[in-house]
């Protein structure tokens, strides 16, 4: 019998702490598989965020740094500038990247910093218990928008991928989803492409991954994937937003 599929060695044996049905685990696996398939474990440095993925350094089986909230792109910049031969990636959520770290991500992108950013957008602050995020949809109920996000009061969700794609610095930006197997395969391709972009020295690459948060959305895992497909994708259209050949 041949192995068709098994857990990559780029993930450690530590059980993931994520809630049942949380798609962070899928995204971790795709990133780890990409590093594994590209044969770059021995020179990859991952930068973990603050948020649900704060313990990412326990899961990715490569050298890791843990950054302050939103600062992962700055940490990655320092790391990459010291050892340009390293492959440096950040793994950040929407609160981390699109709110408190909006300056760091924008400037890393516009500098064309030769790093890869995995941006997990689940439209909510997960780790702190389900507060409104910069990516929370209009009308979406969270613990700090209990009547639904009112754009008149707190503005509109940020489309990070489209925003960064307007800059000259980035070499590859795409938005993908992990709500079904087909989209998971597409997501994998994009993530691999992002790392290949860095390997080729082309500059900044970012993959925004739409992700489900069943616990804080107050849904079953199955309902949350459906909700992602029906509500998040219209707000955050999938596809490649920028690609420099």
């Amino acid at each position: 019998m041949a192995v068709v599929y098994e857990k990559t060695k780029l993930l450690t044996d530590k059980p993931l702490h994520y809630c049942p049905g949380c798609t962070h685990g899928i995204i971790h696996r795709l990133v780890a598989e990409a590093i594994d398939e590209l044969g770059i474990q021995n020179r990859t440095i991952g930068i973990a965020p603050v948020g649900c993925a704060v313990f990412a350094y326990d899961y990715f089986n490569c050298d890791m740094m843990e950054a302050a909230h939103g600062r992962a792109p700055a940490v990655a910049t320092g790391c990459k500038r010291v050892n340009p031969g390293n492959i440096v990636f950040t793994y950040q959520g929407d609160g981390d990247l699109a709110s408190i770290g909006a300056a760091e991500i924008t400037h890393a992108a516009t500098r064309g910093e030769n790093i890869t950013v995995i941006f997990v957008n689940n439209a909510i602050y997960g780790m702190t218990g389900g507060q409104m995020a910069p990516t929370t949809l209009p009308g979406q109920v969270t613990t700090t928008s209990p009547y639904g996000r009112d754009p008149k009061l707190c503005g509109y969700p940020i489309r990070i991928s489209e925003m960064l794609a307007t800059l000259d610095g980035p070499a590859f930006i795409s938005r993908v989803s992990v709500h079904d197997v087909k989209h998971i395969l597409d997501a994998k391709k994009s993530i691999k492409k992002a790392f290949e972009t860095q390997l080729a020295g082309k500059g900044f690459s970012l993959v925004e991954v739409l992700s489900a948060c069943p616990t804080n959305w107050g849904m079953t895992p199955q309902e949350s994937l459906k909700w992602l497909e029906q509500n998040m994708i219209p707000q955050y259209p999938l596809g490649i937003k920028k690609e420099v050949e």
Partner: peptide, 12 residues
């Protein structure tokens, strides 16, 4: 950002 770049560079 500058001090966090220092963090990354020192960490390397």
């Amino acid at each position: 950002a500058a001090i966090n770049m220092v963090y990354g560079a020192a960490g390397a």
